[in-house]
Amino acid sequence: MVHPLRKHIESISKLTDEEFEHVLTHFTPVKYKKHTQLVREGDLVKQEYFVLKGCLRSYITDSTGKDFTYSFAAETWWVTEREAFTKHQPATTTVECLEDCELLALTHENRMKLGRDLWKYEHYVAEKTNLGYIALQKRLQLMITGSAKERFEQFVAQYPHLYNRVPKTMIASYLGVSRETLSRLYRK
């Protein structure tokens, strides 16, 4: 069976067995229990994570204590607090395990080393970054111009595997609607 990380990288850049083994030596396997916070607001973020198993969410909390979910991460997705990881500054968000998780952790130092050592990995990261930016741009456009129904339908179409794994209050937060509105949309 092909390692999930290798399969993910090879969707962009094909690797030899030796190249993949080199990539894998830069990662550390880690396991976290449900409800563990990988990143807390104010933390310095030293790692990004590739999800092998489990589901996580990233969210911000306003001054009244209300949470706003801005992303989820499930199998074969990457998760971290990107700005804090890249700029070496305190996190402004929280990343929490919604299920027990098995992840591959990559330090910033190892991320940079891999990019220098292996152009195929750097190409993969650049392409995934571009695709992530496009997805974020589409999500932002839909949040601005789309109705609650359109946002819900897009979420279910794009992430059908998440709908039954993630608490509905968090999906409602992600979509910018109330839990009650989400219930009405689901019944239609």
Rank of each mutant, 00 (worst) to 15 (best):
E21C: 00
H22W: 04
V23R: 00
H26K: 09
F27R: 03
F27E: 04
V30S: 06
V30M: 10
K31S: 10
K31D: 10
Y32M: 02
Y32R: 06
K33P: 03
K34F: 05
Q37W: 00
Q37H: 03
G42V: 05
G42N: 02
D43I: 01
L44S: 10
L44H: 11
Q47C: 07
Q47E: 09
Q47G: 00
Y49W: 09
Y49V: 01
V51K: 04
L52T: 13
K53D: 15
L56P: 08
Y59P: 07
D62H: 07
T64N: 14
T64L: 12
T64P: 07
G65A: 07
G65W: 07
D67W: 10
F68W: 05
S71N: 14
F72D: 07
F72N: 07
F72L: 09
E75A: 13
E75K: 08
T76L: 13
W77S: 09
W77Y: 14
V79A: 08
T80M: 14
T80F: 14
E81D: 15
R82A: 12
R82Y: 14
A84F: 11
T86G: 04
T86C: 06
K87V: 10
Q89F: 01
Q89E: 12
P90R: 03
A91C: 09
A91T: 04
A91D: 13
T92I: 13
T93H: 15
T94R: 00
C97T: 03
C97S: 06
C97P: 06
C97M: 07
E99P: 09
E99T: 15
C101M: 06
E102W: 01
E102Q: 06
E102V: 04
L103T: 11
A105G: 11
L106T: 14
E109D: 06
N110I: 02
N110W: 03
N110S: 04
N110T: 00
R111Y: 14
M112T: 08
M112Y: 04
K113G: 00
K113F: 03
K113P: 00
R116S: 15
D117A: 09
K120Q: 04
K120E: 02
Y121N: 05
Y121E: 03
Y121Q: 04
H123M: 09
V125H: 06
A126N: 08
A126R: 12
A135V: 00
L136N: 12
L136Q: 12
K138T: 07
Q141D: 04
Q141H: 04
T145Q: 00
G146M: 02
G146A: 02
S147Y: 05
S147I: 06
S147W: 05
F152H: 10
Q154G: 01
F155P: 07
F155S: 05
F155C: 06
F155L: 07
V156I: 13
A157R: 08
Q158R: 13
H161V: 00
Y163E: 13
R165K: 15
R165Q: 15
V166G: 11
V166T: 07
